[in-house]
């Protein structure tokens, strides 16, 4: 194990996979000469050259499409969205081309592409640059959606995403790039897609989250433990497809669920989790599934309003109290 930042862990994953497979290349705005807007691609241009670390004009739609086209012919592109706020310009390509090509052609295409970059609210960027996009992508059959919460998971999952033969949306977090953690330096360290990770074991209530939300959940769990409540924290890691087995095992034990996400509530990840849990595990619930989400407004700039909009460990504790019938 080695201690490294999230940014370094992702960089290591890109480096290793590009070295491993010449069909892998990185394309996006400022990924080469500038060394990456968030420095995730630092040093890669020097190592792999301009043919494999490709700077693009500011044209998300077309370079997303170029990536998809090249994947249809067998390359394994990694398309960096400087932030996922700009992926909206490329949604037509991602939804109509990447996700659907296999089906529309009756199985003639494999589209092994990764769209990656920072996602989710950041700090004081107002409405257009600070939002969670995961629920949009999760709605699309044909896509896989991954959102790691630790440097170690980030590395193992990004390598898996690059090797996967389906299009993967890989969601990082600007505010976590500096987070440090122990990262495996095993020769071929890859985590499976489609599996949850139990980040903390507990018996009284299940907290389900992903990405930055995991840290709100873990913070709440620590505080609750002082109070004698043992929360189990499940990190989805892959948001689509969902690993319902791990979730079911936990819910059967705790009978209570709180979901935590930074995105908007309507049609969010928590909404899907609540549906599946009430459907599959109805008889194991002792309280309604409860969500902690961002507030249902575009992100305001002012710091105090931003803080109000975003979920916090305190919100998680309040939700836990509700599902545990604690006053």
């Amino acid at each position: 194990m080695a201690t490294m930042s999230f940014r370094e862990a992702l960089n290591a994953a890109l480096d290793e996979e590009m070295a491993r497979d010449p069909k892998v290349f990185l394309m996006g705005e400022e990924v080469g000469q500038y060394q990456g807007a968030y420095k995730v691609s630092q040093g890669l241009l020097e190592k792999f050259g301009a043919d494999r670390v490709v700077d693009t004009p500011i044209t998300e739609l077309s370079f997303a499409g170029v990536g998809i086209g090249s994947a249809m012919l067998g390359l394994r592109p990694i398309i960096e969205m400087m932030t996922f706020n700009f992926s909206i310009l490329a949604l037509d390509q991602i939804i109509n081309n990447a996700a659907k090509m296999r089906l529309m052609s009756g199985g003639q295409y494999t589209v092994p592409i990764v769209f990656r970059g920072p996602n989710g609210p950041a700090h004081m960027l107002s409405a257009q640059h600070s939002q969670a996009t995961e629920s949009w992508f999760c709605n699309i059959p044909g896509l896989k959606v991954v959102a790691p919460s630790t440097p170690n998971d980030g590395k193992g999952l990004l390598k898996a995403a690059i090797r996967d033969d389906d299009p993967v949306i890989f969601l990082e977090s600007e505010l976590m790039y500096n987070m440090k953690g122990e990262v495996s330096d095993a020769a071929d360290y890859v985590l499976p897609l489609g599996k949850c990770d139990v980040k903390r074991a507990g018996k009284d209530v299940t907290l389900i989250s992903f990405s930055k939300g995991i840290h709100h959940a873990l913070g709440a769990a620590e505080a609750l433990a002082q109070d004698g409540v043992e929360a189990e924290v499940i990190d989805l890691m892959t948001l689509r497809p969902l690993d319902m087995e791990t979730i079911a095992r936990s819910v059967k034990k705790t009978n209570r669920v709180v979901t935590v996400e930074e995105g908007w509530p309507y049609g969010g990840i928590g909404a899907e989790l609540a549906y599946r849990i009430q459907h599959d595990l109805f008889d194991y619930l002792d309280a309604p599934v409860t969500r902690v989400t961002g507030l249902d407004v575009p992100m305001p700039y002012a710091e105090n309003l931003e803080e109000l909009v975003l979920p916090s460990p305190r919100d998680v504790i309040l939700a836990v109290n509700t599902v545990m019938y604690r006053s």
């Binding site: 009978n255 109805f282 008889d283 194991y284 619930l285 002792d286 309280a287």
Partner: peptide
């Protein structure tokens, strides 16, 4: 599994787990 009804015909409120 279905919601029971008390003597006055009121639905008894119970969580799914409590019913089970």
């Amino acid at each position: 599994r279905t919601a029971p009804v008390d003597a006055d015909g009121h639905r008894v409120k119970a969580s799914p787990l409590a019913r089970r």
